[in-house]
Design a protein around this nucleic acid. Structure first.
Length: 551
DNA sequence: TTTAAAGCTAAACTTGGCACGTATGCCAA
């Protein structure tokens, strides 16, 4: 079981304890435990195997034994037990933005509400306002929250889907001694996918079934007559395997990579069999089109006219301008981050811990920033091949001013600005606020501009035209946050920003060493927005980056 | 529940925004 899955169970347990009204300290211990496990760099299973779990700060005897139970049984016995006492469906209400466990507990105890449908019913019958502390405004927020939940697709995050697609295709390929590759929306780097699609050169659905069962604990396996195998993969989602042969590989690969709009518009005749995608496109007098472009957004026309963009590639990324260390809420030290960056063959990185306004993340004030600079300088001395920028992720206050004085910002090599609180201001005020940050001459990058969490938290609303105009004018760079939970800016806004003359940075926002590895998801978004390396500042050589930073 | 101090128990946990309702609790970062 993956760390995130263990963390999820612990966090669900914390929520149920909280709903039940248990001691806040106990609840918090589980919340912290969940957070700790999520941010761990090594697989938690490894820590258990080596008896080191108890050494982790924030995990004591109780949590360690809980985690061992979870890993052994694939489920959390205490959580199951607790669900006998209070309905597990209450957790679906906690997922509504703006409603926490405390409120859910009151709805349950005082109104007997156990799920979202019953909550909606209570809203319709105006029963919520009878509760002390719940007025019309709250009810309105709840209604909006439910509406947002309803819009969720339940699709699989690319961050889960792509590694799983690679694991499964590798296992099938090795086991059957054949070709197996991800296709479908996973291959196109869509931010979420409905199914994980694979193409396998084989007719041996029985052997594939065996691999899925033995290696991935797949259930609900169905072999369909139309040469495909369907299955459910635990903790991942649904999988579809298309069976092909060498002769049809290229045409099948195009067909099953999609998108369906692209394939329909191509009009590839059923009779065409091609061994490679290039050969298949050739039968239509077209050059090969990168999967990320296959969304029927003008790519076929562009291909026909030989003006497809030269898309940015992962290997062109020379640095990462947004990551957190142990100085704030990261788990890796500056030195560890530097060493990993060198392994990734980066030429430069920026240590951008939180500023003191984000107290919960142990943000840095001016004094600690100066102390941190000393440490960064020490690390720099040991790794001359890597340039380490002394940066900070600075809070943008409600009035558009920044969380550090200008003279403190001036000391930094690079300033990343972001909004972590009060994002539901009216659109006009929010726009003014972010433009205030953009116009600050010290600010270089605006991080995760919309603040959305994919499928969990809606994006903030801005007058984007004005935001892009200001950023283009001042040369302030907007981020593609490459964390698959964020992917922020989203692709359609990336395209608009670049169209308006704004440059982009693709950053990991890593909070541990593994967190540095998400870069490819950000590159995927950039490619889907038709971007070339020229648009992306962290593909630039160091001297050009330094020139941009004005030093 | 964890951790730090001790040898059993006590302390841990910030900050601002917001709604409700005129002092407090919840939520989210």
């Amino acid at each position: 079981m993956k760390n995130e899955d263990v963390a999820k169970l612990l966090s669900q347990f914390a929520d149920l304890l909280d709903i039940k009204g248990e001691s806040g300290f106990r609840v918090n211990a589980y919340r912290r435990g969940a957070d700790t496990v999520k941010r761990l760099d090594e697989p938690v299973q490894q820590l258990v195997d080596e008896g080191r779990l108890i050494d982790v700060k924030g995990i004591g005897k109780g949590l360690a034994s809980n985690i061992e139970d979870i890993l052994e049984q694939g489920q959390f016995p205490d959580l199951e037990e607790l669900q006998d006492e209070i309905p597990g469906t209450l957790l679906t209400i906690v997922a509504i933005p703006g409603i926490g466990a405390k409120t859910v507990g009151r709805f349950y105890r005082e109104l007997g509400i156990t799920n979202v449908e019953e909550l909606e019913h209570a809203v319709e019958e105006d029963r919520l306002t009878a509760l002390k502390g719940i007025g019309n405004k709250q009810v309105q927020r709840i209604t909006e929250g439910i509406e947002f939940l309803r819009q969720r697709t339940g699709r699989i995050s690319i961050g889960t889907a792509l590694p799983a697609a690679r694991d499964i295709s590798r296992a099938i390929g090795e086991s059957l001694g054949t070709r197996a590759e991800p296709v479908g929306s996973v291959r196109r780097y869509a931010e979420t996918v409905g199914n994980i699609d694979l193409l396998v050169e084989s007719t041996d659905s029985d052997s594939i079934t065996t691999v899925l069962k033995d290696r991935f604990k797949a259930s609900e396996i169905e072999i369909e007559p139309a040469d495909r195998v369907r299955a459910q993969i635990p903790m991942v989602g649904s999988l579809v395997i298309f069976l092909s042969d060498a002769e049809h590989w290229g045409s099948d690969s195009i067909r099953y990579t999609g998108s369906s709009e692209h394939v329909d518009a191509l009009g590839l005749p059923e009779s065409v069999s091609a061994t490679s995608e290039t050969a298949a496109y050739e039968t239509l007098d077209l050059p090969w089109i990168a999967p990320e472009l296959r969304e029927h957004r003008g790519e076929i026309q562009a291909a026909r006219e030989h003006r497809l963009p030269e898309l940015v590639e992962l290997r062109q990324i020379r640095g990462d301008l947004h990551m957190h260390s142990t100085w704030s809420d990261g788990r890796a030290s500056v030195r560890e981050l530097a060493e990993r960056a060198i392994e990734l063959q980066y030429e430069y990185i920026a240590i951008a811990d939180h500023s003191h306004g984000l107290a919960v993340a142990n943000g840095l004030d001016a004094e600690r920033l100066r102390e941190q600079r000393k440490e960064i300088e020490e690390v720099r001395a040991g790794y001359p091949s890597l340039t380490i920028f002394c940066a900070n992720e600075v809070e943008v206050r409600r009035d558009g001013t920044l969380d550090h004085a200008d003279e403190v910002l001036a000391e930094l090599d690079l300033v990343v600005a972001s909004l972590h609180s009060g994002r539901n201001m009216p659109k006009e005020e929010l726009t003014e606020r972010v433009i205030g940050a953009i116009r600050n001459p010290h600010v270089d990058v605006i991080a995760h501009p919309t603040g959305r969490i994919v499928e969990q938290r809606p994006p903030a609303e801005y007058d984007w035209e004005r935001v892009f105009e200001a950023a283009a004018e001042t040369g302030t760079v907007l981020e593609i946050n490459a964390n698959p939970a964020r992917l922020d800016l989203p692709e359609h806004l990336v395209a608009q920003a670049v169209e308006a003359g704004v440059s982009i940075a693709i950053n990991s926002d890593a909070h541990n060493l593994r967190g540095l590895d998400v870069m490819e998801f950000g590159v995927g978004i950039a490619r889907r927005a038709w971007l070339s390396s020229e648009h992306i500042v962290n593909t630039w050589p160091l001297d050009r980056v330094e020139q941009w930073l004005g030093r």
